[in-house]
Nucleic acid binder design. Structure first.
Ligand SMILES: [Mn+2]
Ligand SMILES: [Mn+2]
Ligand SMILES: [Zn+2]
Ligand SMILES: [Zn+2]
Lengths: 158, 158
DNA sequence: TAGTTATTGAAAACGGTTTTCATTATCAAT
DNA sequence: ATTGATAATGAAAACCGTTTTCAATAACTA
């Protein structure tokens, strides 16, 4: 259990509204999938979501999970990551319920640690870099990914 | 054609030596694959390499390309990237022939631009971040990936 | 040169994701 | 509420990059 339940309710209603605005229909499978994403603070794979949804809605298929994830990603409501473990992983996009952060990835056990420290200094560097790069390469920067790879404490001491 | 041919020759001889040191045999397919990597400044996929090698050595198989790439990656001589186009891509690891750099990735055409600018300020930020993160999370940082996503100039004006 | 065994190529298997297609559910108009 | 147009769904099959299997071959050592 993470955070209060009230905020998540808001989030879901917000999502539904955005969905309708874009001309999409709000369906039971989509609601269920969005609930799983909104309730979790993990980096979920399609199968993770499928299995969780399956407990309450056994007839929702994995295909629909993939389709909904693509939709939400295209709409910018979630973010798709590749952490190098052979499957895509998803989390809420930056917003009221999710702070800007980056990841430490353990090369041995694949554990992912989120950090929000150093974000101020990072923003400083990123802003200057983005400005310089945009000018030099005429490249319209929309986002960035920073991953640190290494060995976590649990793995270091065997 | 990029850079002089002499340096690349050195590079290849160096690679061969390292190979032997690790107890691996230096074979014709491996040499061919390493030559393709050493001669290119692109971000090559396994199939890219396979097709190039195939021109000179039609009997070298794709399987061997994959096996050699894994070997070179594990030995730290090349780096494996995921740029989000569904296949792994490889390039020379940082060294005398390859400067430290990061990537701008066009979300539309998937073009990859390498940049080495702002690396000094970046190193400044990265050093502080790595120091802080290592301490706080007891995480032994070995490397990092910084990707900027956006729209390249060619795509921006349609 | 011979013998040990690492390396190889072809084919099959693998696994995450996407496509196909007939059926069902959603939603606006009645 | 009922209807009708059509967006969305689930099961199965296809897809495709990568890995595994295994008998044949080539590279090193003695
Ligand atoms: Mn995260
Ligand atoms: Mn590069
Ligand atoms: Zn670990
Ligand atoms: Zn582009």
């Amino acid at each position: 259990m993470q955070r209060g339940g009230g905020r998540r309710g808001m989030l879901r209603r917000g999502w539904g509204g955005k969905f309708k605005e874009c001309g999409y229909r709000m369906t039971v499978p989509r609601k269920a999938i969005m609930d799983v994403l909104g309730d979790s603070d993990k980096h979920l794979s399609a199968e993770d979501i499928y299995l969780t949804v399956h407990r309450s809605y056994p007839n929702v298929g994995l295909t629909t999970v993939y389709r909904t994830l693509e939709l939400l990603t295209d709409m910018g409501m979630i973010v798709k990551f590749d952490f190098g473990d052979g499957r895509a992983r998803y989390e809420l996009a930056e917003g009221p319920d999710k702070k800007h952060h980056h990841h430490l990835i353990c090369r041995r056990c694949k554990r992912i640690i989120e950090y929000t420290e150093f974000i101020d200094e990072e923003m400083d560097f990123l802003n200057r870099a983005e400005k310089g790069l945009s000018e030099k390469y005429k490249f319209d920067i929309k986002g960035h990914v920073i991953h640190f790879y290494g060995i976590c404490d649990k793995c270091r001491y065997k």
